[in-house]
Amino acid sequence: MVEIAVFAVCAAIILVGAVGVIAARNPVHSALFLIQTLFGMAVVFISLEAHFLAAVQVVVYAGAIVILFLFVIMLLGVDQSENLNIEPIVGQRFIAGVVGVATFALMLVTLTGSEDAITGQPQATGALGDELTDANNVRQLAETLFTDYVFAFEATAILLTIAVVGAVVLAKRTQGEMLPTPRNTLEIREEAYQARIDARAAQLEANAAESAAADSASSTGEADADLVEASGTGDETDGGDA
């Protein structure tokens, strides 16, 4: 019973956090929601007998990675909000929804198809449940890391080197002028994008006004239709090659 309660609470924390990450307007809020999810995950790890991982989860993920995020957000000052009511490319949210739901449905069908979908071979050696001490968990991890996965372990050295080199290469101050970009294309795109955003914003305002004053509907309704039409055509030309 306790087990169920722990799971339910953690699942709620994790999912609320995840939804918060993608729904928050402000990236700082997203980062904080991310921390929430990561903490929930750490608790789940403990209930799955991965004690060391739970600690690592908090230290590395919440402590290092999310802090790095926050650091960059603050450094760049890009903490301004994003208007989430405007869909950037028509149909993108629909596609995103389809991809997400399809993935989830795939897993759901897979996992609920049978009582226990996991068909892998249970390991005779190194059973996790024998002596549940943290030291044992760490020892098992270390042993596997330095035997079966020693090559992968060594290979991560290259990965980290690349990350360092890459970060230095990208973040070092550029010498010399920026090269001219094809200005006209850029400007045209920007104008189109700006126009689209304006149109949507205007439409939303109109909608709001409409709902506020529900009686006087006829004239604004027409304006609305025009706006929708205009933005619709703009999107079509823009998204044509995507």
Binding site: L15, I22, G100, T103, F104, L108
Partner: peptide, 12 residues
């Protein structure tokens, strides 16, 4: 799976 899907949707 739910978490993965939320992440995928958010990224898109």
């Amino acid at each position: 799976a739910a978490l993965f899907s939320i992440g995928a949707i958010g990224l898109l």
